[in-house]
Each structure stands twice: as C-alpha cells, then as structure tokens.
C-alpha cells in the first residue's frame, strides 16, 4: 500500500517492559531513601526467614537451666529466657513462621477478597450485593475479636490463624478491587475485548485483573504488616501457635511477666523484631505505591 505513507510520529525511546520496571524501581529507590531502606530491611527479613534456622548459634528449643535468665552478653546476644533458651536464636528462627503466616494469609485473602471484589465491580447486580453484604458483615465485628472467635471455634493451628487473618482482611481487598474493576467495566478496551469475542470471565481475568494488580500489590504489602501483628497477637493471648514453638507473639507473652522483675530482654527483642517487620512492610507499601503509580513516571 503506497497511498498512505506511515507518518513519522514521535515516540519514546524503545524500552522493554522489564527494563522499564527496573529503571523505575531504581529511580524511586534513589529518590526516596526511606523506600530504599525498607527494601533493604525486607531483604534482611527474607534472608533470616530462609537461612535463619541453619545459621543460628543455639537450638531455639534446647533449654539450659544453668544459663536461665541471663542478660545479653557476648555468648547470648539477646540474653536467655527462663528456661535458658537463647533469645537471639529464637527471634531469628521465628522469622520464618511469622512471615509465612503473613504471606500465606495475604495470598489467601487476595484470592478470596480480590477476586470476589473484581467480580462484584465488573458484574454488579446480585454479585455486587452479595459480596458487599459479606464484607459489611465482617466489618460489623471488631476485627481482632472476630479473628479470636474464628481460631477459638476452629482450633489452634497455623492453618486456622492464616484463615482467620485472611477473613478479617477480606473487606479491605473486596472493596479496593470492586472500586477498581467498577471504573474499568465500560472502558474502551473492555468493549473492544467484547468485540474480539472474549467471554465475560476471560475479560475479567485477562483484561481487567492485570490492570488492577499494581494497586492490589500495594494493598498486599500494606496488609502484610497487619497480618503479622494479627498472628502475633493471637499467639500472645494464647490462641495461636503453641509453646514451645519460637514465635514472636508467644515470646513477648512469655517475657511480659518478667518485665517487672527486671528481665526486660525476654520481651523486648521479639517485640522489636515484630515492630521492625511491620514497619518494613508499611514503608514498602508506600514505596510500591510510588513505583506503580504512573503519575510518578514523569
């Protein structure tokens, strides 16, 4: 076809998707030192979760009554508890369990709440009403009390903690996903997908879901911190993981009684670990929001 010459139109320099994302990440990390710091923290947490159990100096479960209630020293960096277990080892080993519970519950709630929310926003009508009322029902309870109730009813297992944490977060995901899907349901590209012969479910999963993923990832990072707190909180009140398993919530609970008698280290170090993990995920969420936000890509 010679009649219409391809007009020379300006376009940005060619960059592949991955390179662009890496460049964007580097830019945001460089611009925002706090986000860079939280990424570094995340890497530390992940390393501890993966390699912690193999590298710690003491067996986290081995008790040594001769060395009970020792203050932090060169031999025991974080001191020892009432049974003489090394607190440093226990804090590091607990990272895996706590992050696993958080990640698993966030993935679960994304699958339940995220997908239900997208369907509600896209289809509207009865789907929307049912998902909306389920979310309202969950929100009607104080969330931690609801989580307590679920674990108490179903039993004290890791699976049930994950499930309870996921259910408690359901409304957050369902609402964000619903709002995002709702504004896109009549977008031009969705109409075009209908014209191309895509079925409704295919449009939902192939066309709408990828467009909503960035905001969902931010949401996941932000709720990760809450999930960790929730899991630790359940363990703290005795409804979660059982002793002697190393878990931050239990360790804080065990150490709380010794605070008054001056053995502050038993509760302090697992508490600090908890705080840093939550802090890290919250900062990370803010940073991720900047990365996925096209407004920042000037």
């Amino acid at each position: 076809m010679s009649t219409v010459a391809p007009a020379v139109e300006p376009g940005p320099a060619r960059t592949s998707g991955l390179v662009a994302i890496l460049e964007q990440t580097r830019y945001v990390l460089g611009e925002n030192k706090v986000t860079g710091f939280s990424f570094a923290l995340l890497i530390v947490i992940l390393l501890a979760a993966i390699f912690g159990p193999y590298t710690v100096p003491y067996d986290p479960l081995a008790s040594d009554t001769a060395a009970a209630l020792k203050a932090p020293s060169a031999a025991h960096w974080f001191g020892t508890d009432q049974l003489g277990r090394d607190i440093f080892s226990r804090v590091v080993v607990a990272t895996r369990l706590d992050t696993f519970i958080a990640v698993a519950s966030v993935v679960l709630v994304f699958l339940m709440g995220g997908l239900a929310g997208i369907a509600a926003g896209y289809f509207g009508g009865w789907t929307d009403r049912i998902v909306g009322r389920i979310a309202d029902t969950i929100m009607a309870f104080p969330l931690f009390v609801l989580a307590m109730g679920i674990v108490a009813a179903l039993g004290n297992t890791v699976q049930n903690i994950i499930l309870a944490t996921a259910i408690v977060n359901f409304p957050l995901y369902a609402r964000v996903a619903r709002a995002e899907a709702n504004v896109r349901r009549n977008a031009g590209f969705v109409q075009a997908a209908r014209l191309s012969g895509n079925g409704e479910f295919r449009i939902l999963l192939v066309h709408i879901l990828p467009n909503i993923m960035p905001i969902m990832i931010v949401q996941m990072s932000l709720t990760m911190g809450y999930a960790i707190l929730n899991a630790a909180g359940l363990s703290f009140i005795g409804l979660g993981v059982r002793p002697p398993t190393a878990e931050w919530g239990i360790m804080v609970a065990e150490g709380a009684g010794f605070m008054v008698s001056g053995e502050w280290w038993i509760a302090l170090f697992p508490g600090l670990a908890l705080m840093i993990a939550v802090f890290c995920f919250n900062l990370l969420g803010d940073g991720l929001r900047d990365i996925v936000d096209p407004q920042r890509r000037t």
Binding site: A187, G188, F189, Q191, A192, A193, R194, L195, G197, N198, G199, H207, P210, N211
Partner: peptide, 22 residues
C-alpha cells in the same frame, strides 16, 4: 460474543488511548 457474526461487525473506538488495554 462467541457467534461467527461477531467477527463480521467490528468497531473503531473514539478514544484510542482508552480503547487499548494498558
């Protein structure tokens, strides 16, 4: 959407940006 006639009628949309999946 799934019938053969679908491919016989097609459309060019008003807003080229909005009509392409980002």
């Amino acid at each position: 959407a799934r019938l053969p006639q679908r491919s016989r009628i097609q459309m060019v949309f008003q807003d080229p940006t909005d009509s392409l999946n980002p």
